[in-house]
């Protein structure tokens, strides 16, 4: 009888923990990590819509929650995750059509993704804070 694959204890090949972190691997892990963060963050938008539909009081409570220190930290993490996943996602889409496979290009596009996502997050928060303080 063949047993189900999950019942067999097979030896595992060397995995993440024994390799030196490289720009390629770190960014790949980060893409997945930010994807999970964005999945969790989607609940924020869902609740925002629900709060808006529930009426003024609920909306204000939810708004206060989002603009509290903890809320802002969550939004900050979400916004970086969003821009990172967006920029690296474009990098993935370019790979899908066969662009940018040479190793120097892969590293260069990787760093471009890192800097672009930091800059875009910075721009977003600058605009958001200016709007909040009535400067916009």
């Amino acid at each position: 009888m063949l047993s189900a694959p999950e019942d067999i204890k097979r030896p595992l090949s060397p995995h993440l923990q024994i390799y030196k972190p490289q720009i390629t691997s770190v960014l790949s892990i980060l893409h997945r990590g930010t994807g999970i963060v964005l999945f969790g963050g989607s609940l924020l938008w869902c609740l925002w819509f629900v709060a808006l539909a529930a009426g003024r009081d609920t909306y204000h409570h939810y708004q206060d929650l989002l603009l509290s220190p903890i809320g802002l930290i969550i939004l900050m993490g979400w916004s970086f995750s969003f821009f990172y996943h967006l920029c690296n996602g474009i990098r993935h889409l370019l790979w899908d059509i066969g662009i940018g496979y040479e190793m120097p290009t892969v590293r260069k596009s990787g760093w471009t993704v890192v800097f672009s996502s930091i800059i875009l997050t910075g721009i977003t928060w600058t605009i958001g804070l200016m709007k909040w303080k009535g400067l916009l």
Partner: peptide, 17 residues
């Protein structure tokens, strides 16, 4: 989601406050 995500972030950013 490239254009829609960017639109939503801008939309939400201005409405948040």
């Amino acid at each position: 989601l490239i254009p829609l995500g960017l639109w939503f972030v801008g939309f939400f950013l201005l409405l948040l406050t």
